[in-house]
Design a protein around this nucleic acid. Structure first.
Lengths: 128, 128
DNA sequence: GCAACACATGGACGTGTGTCAATATCGCGA
DNA sequence: TCGCGATATTGACACACGTCCATGTGTTGC
């Protein structure tokens, strides 16, 4: 994810009449994939609520005691969602005795936050 | 999406010994769902690249002329992905003659950007 | 009018996802 | 040691997703 491959440029042949100058670059495939993986982890309302809940808990730490009933899901389903969040690197898992404590990893969101700052180019040029 | 329902509070009964004070709120279900819908639209590497491509094009406008070959996908697949992005409100669709021009809607990302600013509460209190 | 082009749609197929019930695993306390 | 409570895993199911081919719908140009 840290290695940034050289971006691809589209339609290198110059005899193409469409979009002669203002062609944009394409995000490298591996970079797009790792971004999509984080978005995939967030692409579920239950996980959206879970991550928010963790971040609002004191120091970002919380246990899962009452979450199933509050979210209206079963315990295995909650475990499944936490596994997804952990897999995406969005939360850390720490087992303390019988319970598991979850902590948010805000740094894991840095990449998607940077991506969402879409660099809108000013200008009036139409493409085709 | 603009209507903010009152957030739920978990485990209202006080005789519960776990997490007596520091319990966090739960994001309303409808709000979580609309956030997840946007994340779902971004949860695919092809769409991640498409949105970035559009945002890097002059004034955020681009046609789809060469995108299938550049992305290694077929024309119907590209149409499918653009439909998804449009459905999520991330891009606008404007038909000019034979071509379709796409424009990014940065305002549609405002909600998810705000969500990703997770409000990490300072403090050392453990929950359970 | 008709051919060529850009894009959308429908059908089909394999794969991934979200959910639960049932079961397994791990740690604590009696 | 034994049982209980918290969590993880497995199997099963319905459903959505991503992809393609084939075809349909407009639009431009000859």
């Amino acid at each position: 994810m840290t290695t940034t491959a050289p971006p691809l440029r589209i339609a290198t042949d110059l005899e193409d009449a469409c979009c002669p100058t203002g062609r944009a670059d394409l995000l490298p495939a591996d970079e797009a994939e790792s971004l999509a993986d984080v978005f995939k982890a967030l692409a579920d309302p239950t996980r959206v609520r879970l991550l928010r809940f963790l971040s609002e808990s004191p120091s970002g730490i919380a246990c899962a005691c009452h979450l199933p009933e509050a979210l209206g899901i079963s315990q295995p389903t909650l475990s499944f969602h936490m596994h997804k969040l952990h897999e995406a690197g969005l939360v850390d898992r720490e087992k303390r005795g019988r319970w598991v404590h979850w902590t948010v990893r805000p740094d894991a969101l840095a990449a998607v936050q940077a991506y969402l700052q879409l660099p809108l180019r000013p200008g009036s040029a139409d493409c085709c």
